[in-house]
């Protein structure tokens, strides 16, 4: 099967759905590019080139370049969705969500509920997150936890190209608001991706590897970090089961609990900050629903509670590393309920 990058997988998803359904449109800054300046129309195709070439095939009524005003473009997309279109709004960096939060949080997310189920809002906001690009504190946050906290919004967090394509098609066909988070550091990660359109249901975790000693739950780029750690730990006879939830809302609690019931140990790896984050959310859920199965305390490996540093040295130290994950797993392997109560 052909190997494709996340970038190409996302593009295929958008193109296939735009061909299938004339209601699917793309709205965002530079999604075509070149408009209003001296360059050729369509040369840019979004910050990561995902929508490159779309304007030639679908025209500027369906591939809409907007001014640099996130409040307007997300609000416009929410309104378009309410009229029956299926917009994919591109928000270059999730950090910019601050200026359009009302459009998502208090408008789009509430339409179905406040109109007694009579309104649908098939809106996808595709956005980019994560550290590692030397892009400083205002362009490097995760923030997926903020949206996971909002009822009425679905949060999709693909870690590989196969999932990216199937989840984006599912998101476009979904009748609710979906925020689709791509980590900026993994756009070129490749995977086997079918040429055809396919969908992956939300709330179905991917078991990346099966193991017996420790369960690791990791999100987005951290799935790869955790997998590297697991490979290294395997050499020392520590067997890791790695779970990629793929969506944080809905969350596949069942798969996580089932795994913890087998292993009795849980490490959560989340590039977000530690307070009120996804790691804490999963830890709380497991502590409540699978307490009986736990042989040791849950360990959360997260970024520190600080803005993302601009200094390359500090930024590298900020991002959870495979070494940190490995350390956490080794630690959880030595802990037990007895040791904790005795200490």
């Amino acid at each position: 099967m052909p190997k494709k990058s996340i970038r190409i997988a996302l593009q295929e998803a958008v193109v296939l759905e735009m061909r299938r359904d004339p209601n699917v449109i793309v709205i965002g800054e530079d999604v075509a590019g070149g408009a209003g300046c001296s360059g050729d129309r369509g040369t840019y195709g979004g910050a990561m080139g995902v929508t490159k070439g779309l304007i030639e095939e679908f025209g500027d009524e369906r591939v809409i370049d907007t001014p640099i005003t996130e409040s307007a473009l997300v609000g416009m997309a929410a309104g378009a969705a309410a009229t029956g279109l299926r917009p994919i709004a591109e928000l270059m960096f999730v950090d910019f969500m601050g200026v359009c939060f009302d459009q998502v949080l208090n408008q789009a997310a509430k339409f179905r509920y406040m109109f007694g189920g009579k309104a649908t809002t098939p809106l996808v906001v595709r956005t980019m997150m994560g550290a590692g690009f030397r892009a400083a504190a205002q362009h490097s946050q995760m923030l997926y936890n903020l949206f996971t906290a909002v009822p009425g919004v679905k949060c999709v967090i693909p870690s590989n190209a196969y999932d990216a394509k199937g989840l984006l098609i599912q998101a476009i066909r979904d009748d609710d608001v979906v925020i689709f988070f791509n980590h900026k550091a993994i756009y070129d990660f490749e995977d086997e991706v079918p040429d055809e359109a396919y969908t992956i249901p939300f709330g179905e975790a991917n078991i990346v590897r099966e193991g017996e000693d420790v369960t690791i739950v990791a999100f987005s780029r951290m799935v790869h970090t955790a997998n590297d750690a697991a490979k290294s730990l395997e050499k020392d006879g520590i067997s890791v089961e790695l779970i990629d939830p793929r969506t944080s809302s809905p969350l596949d609690e069942e798969s996580i609990i089932e795994s913890v019931e087998n292993t009795g140990r849980l490490v959560i790896v989340d590039e977000g900050t530690p307070r009120c984050g996804l790691a804490g959310d999963v830890a709380g859920m497991v502590a409540e629903k699978a307490f009986h199965a736990l042989k040791a305390p849950i360990i959360q490996v997260t970024a520190p509670h600080t803005p993302v540093p601009f200094s390359p040295v500090l930024e590298d130290a900020y991002i959870p590393s495979a070494a940190k994950v490995e350390e956490a797993v080794r630690k959880v392997m030595t802990m037990s309920r007895d040791a904790v109560s005795a200490s």
Binding site: E196, Y198, T199, I200, I207, E210
Partner: peptide
């Protein structure tokens, strides 16, 4: 196995 299940699901998810 997990791979067998995933393989069948990958096939079944394709449009059509």
């Amino acid at each position: 196995s997990r791979d067998m299940v995933n393989g069948v699901l990958r096939y079944k998810r394709i449009d059509g």
